[in-house]
Design a protein around this nucleic acid. Sequence first.
DNA 1: CCGCGGGCCTGAGAGC
DNA 2: TGCTCTCAGGCCCGCG
Length: 293
Amino acid sequence: MPELPEVETVRRGLAPALVSARFAHVDQRRADLRFPFPADFAARLKGRRVRALRRRAKYLIADLDNGEALVMHLGMSGSFRIEDGVGDNIPGLFHNSRGKEAAHDHVVFDLSNGKRVIYNDPRRFGFMLLVKQDLLPVHPLFRDVGIEPLGDDLDGAKLARLFAGKKAPLKAALLDQRLIAGLGNIYVSEALHRAGLSPRRAAGSLAHKNGTPSPRADLLAGAIHDVLGEAIEAGGSSLRDHRQTNGELGYFQHNFRVYDRAGAPCPRPGCGGAIKRIVQSGRATYYCTTCQK
DNA sequence: CCGCGGGCCTGAGAGC
DNA sequence: TGCTCTCAGGCCCGCG
């Protein structure tokens, strides 16, 4: 499921249930997801209060009252849901009636406020860790993570500098979490189409030979900012997520201009091209060969 | 250093 | 109906 907009949507949905609650009971139902759980995971969480729920890149970080942080990553198929009727229709979450289990429910948090937060992950590419908050910046997971693409951190000049000298195609450079954090396969294709740039173009070509940013860099920075912002507004994108009948997960998938639309006409007014699917670094890329150069 | 391919897992969908 | 094959929103590792 999750790229930055989906993780951010989950964060916003979970925060009302988690923040300022204590973990009354933690049910860890298997020894590992992608990685083994930390030793004594459930015991170390029990009794702790959540002070804040943050997002960095595609990670959720719950700051605990003992100086530790619960770090959570959703992998490809991870999701959270809140039970006990709390937070109905919060985008990014789905709700069962209390007590109804689903396949692949791997972690259950029972909170002091009576709410139950359940982590479900069929493919188990997600994981949870406990890290001292002050060690997060030097932790291997975060040490090399790139800039956040929302807010003021990302502009054309910054993008051109990050990509300077890179021969890798824009598609690969944009997926590289060490450069920009949070883009994934969907939003890279979407941002490149909005910017009118080919995914095959060398990343270094966002700067001129003398190092000054090309106007293309500004177009791309703006497109990234716009597409992520719009996707968050829409509650993220729901593709294969299984969910209960109650409440859509997100509807940005209806606004995809190129992703998973091979053969469809290019949505850019007056373009007249068709969307093509290619494979780069083993992953599907969708773009219009007519208007993306 | 860089880019690529394989691997980790399960499930959905297509084709036969 | 059921089998087999391909593909999937992420990321790490090892290879050349």
